[in-house]
Design a protein around this nucleic acid. Sequence first.
DNA 1: TTTGATCTCCCTTAAAAAGGGGATTTTTAG
DNA 2: CTAAAAATCCCCTTTTTAAGGGAGATCAAA
Lengths: 208, 208
Amino acid sequence: MLRKLNILVVDDHPVVLEGMLNILKQLDFIAEIHKAGEAISAMSIVRKFAIDVVITDINLPEINGIELGRKIHAEFPNINIIGMSTFHDPLYVGELIQAGGKGFITKNSTVSEIESTIRGVMEGQVIISHLLNNQKQVSFPDSQGPIITRREKEVLALIAEGCTNKEIAEKLFVSLSTVDSHRKNLLAKFEVMNTASLISKAMKSGVL
Amino acid sequence: MLRKLNILVVDDHPVVLEGMLNILKQLDFIAEIHKAGEAISAMSIVRKFAIDVVITDINLPEINGIELGRKIHAEFPNINIIGMSTFHDPLYVGELIQAGGKGFITKNSTVSEIESTIRGVMEGQVIISHLLNNQKQVSFPDSQGPIITRREKEVLALIAEGCTNKEIAEKLFVSLSTVDSHRKNLLAKFEVMNTASLISKAMKSGVL
DNA sequence: TTTGATCTCCCTTAAAAAGGGGATTTTTAG
DNA sequence: CTAAAAATCCCCTTTTTAAGGGAGATCAAA
């Protein structure tokens, strides 16, 4: 790297914010470290200072990290955005990359993983830290949840509300068989064997 | 306080660990700060050093924070245990207090809240940090969903993972009938008629 | 125009869950 | 110690899902 980096950390958890700051302070290629607790003040900072890298929590209040990433990327395409989350959720990774993000770390990431991620994205790579151990270089798509059709989504929503197939059939004015088919397809697409895991997967992946 | 405190922080997320360390370093009444990534090494530390306060994450791998609290409290009843979690789960608070814990903070807690909590527990109080603002001195419960038992929660989690009653019975080493009963009670408590709405209600209310 | 995707419908069989009852033994808390 | 609560187990029946197969109609895009 030619010069030291200015970095912005966005997280609504003060503890995490402090932790990242502390870790970043140890890295010799970091110049200024800015911090923000939510998206609005994060935007102010990127507009005011010459930020090179933004590390943002995904689960922010009001405007989430993905949205923040999108906004920053739209205004400052040269800023490298790294997402951060407690858990590694493939959905988040996918959405973040689509929003212009370049890296992803979890709060389980070690200091050296964080360092590698920052260095990597500055070199133009896309780095998903939990894949570092396996030397893998992304190769998305790992398309969040499965692609479901309009009709399947309707059926899914009604299932989640607790409707039986018969009730769904009546509400959608189709036969029981049809609902059954949609249901089978949903199970297949989500790669699950029963309603319980269908609903939890669907909710986790944000389809519901 | 008469003397400075020796403190142990237990968390499996390096970032959080760093953050807490950094925050604690700012407090003038802290002497030694120890850290551990999981319960086993935490136990070694409390046995080796004269620890006054343990701040432990609830969601630890292998042995969780509640269990760790129980173990520490059994061996060293004078150590003040403070639980820490990402979200404020009334269940965790209750269980931690029962396990001998004296305080509870979330990763949303501010530096001053953390400081107040530590001071408070050293003075013999039970401090739940998110209640500090309201000047309230415990008196849980609250909670949006129904009150479910430990066992019911286990069953619920396994249902959400997609296990059938038979599989759950095998995993929990109980009979199919037992699982069936728990399941029936869950449906009754959540006031639903089937698995689909059980899972969606449970997830929405944060029980899952 | 042909292909592909979606939506629709049907069959069968087996497995799982829901709904109703009741009963015993641990645990826990007062 | 003694109740209450939780956890365990069993019976029964009916309803609902799941898994396997196949198939026609429609509509949009290549």
